[in-house]
């Protein structure tokens, strides 16, 4: 009973934190655009949070630069369980065009990732779709 309640509230109010690990900013403005009035992600209970300690979903962009790697890991550690990670954008998935001496080639090289949203940048609709798909998979699993 209590478990169901927790699960229900988890699905209905995913608080997200957005972390740029070295992308071009394109994805970041699209993530914000997904929260804006036109798509209004808040109707799914999605709320942008400032602190990792208050959030459930980590939306990461960027190819993970050397300097941001440790910070990404620390932010991930600070997020309370259960936590989910979305890698948003092509360069967050594989490193794409930023495959260089200073990048690690994707979020999943550094921390575990639950959902991938491809596109450079993905449209806000796609990002929202990724979040909804993640939530649906929680409901089932």
């Amino acid at each position: 009973m209590l478990e169901n309640l927790v699960k229900w509230s988890r699905i209905k109010s995913p608080w997200v934190i957005h972390f740029n690990s070295g992308g071009c900013n394109g994805c970041d403005i699209e993530i914000l655009a997904a929260l804006m009035p036109r798509l209004d992600a808040e109707r799914f209970g999605v709320l942008l949070q400032g602190s990792p300690r208050h959030s459930d979903v980590l939306v990461c962009t960027g190819a993970v630069t050397e300097q941001m790697k440790d910070r990404l890991i620390r932010i991930y550690e600070q997020t309370p369980e259960p936590k989910f990670v979305i890698a948003c954008g092509t360069c967050a998935i594989t490193g794409a065009m930023f495959e260089s001496y200073n990048t690690h080639g994707g979020i999943d090289k550094v921390i575990p990732v639950n959902a991938y949203v491809p596109g450079c940048p993905p449209k806000p609709e796609a990002i929202l779709d990724g979040v909804v798909k993640l939530l649906t998979s929680l409901k089932e699993g």
């Binding site: 630069t65 300097q67 910070r71 260089s100 001496y101 200073n102 990048t103």
Partner: peptide, 9 residues
């Protein structure tokens, strides 16, 4: 923090 080495690439 965001250095990606674009000039080298």
């Amino acid at each position: 923090h965001m250095h990606r080495g674009i000039e080298k690439l």
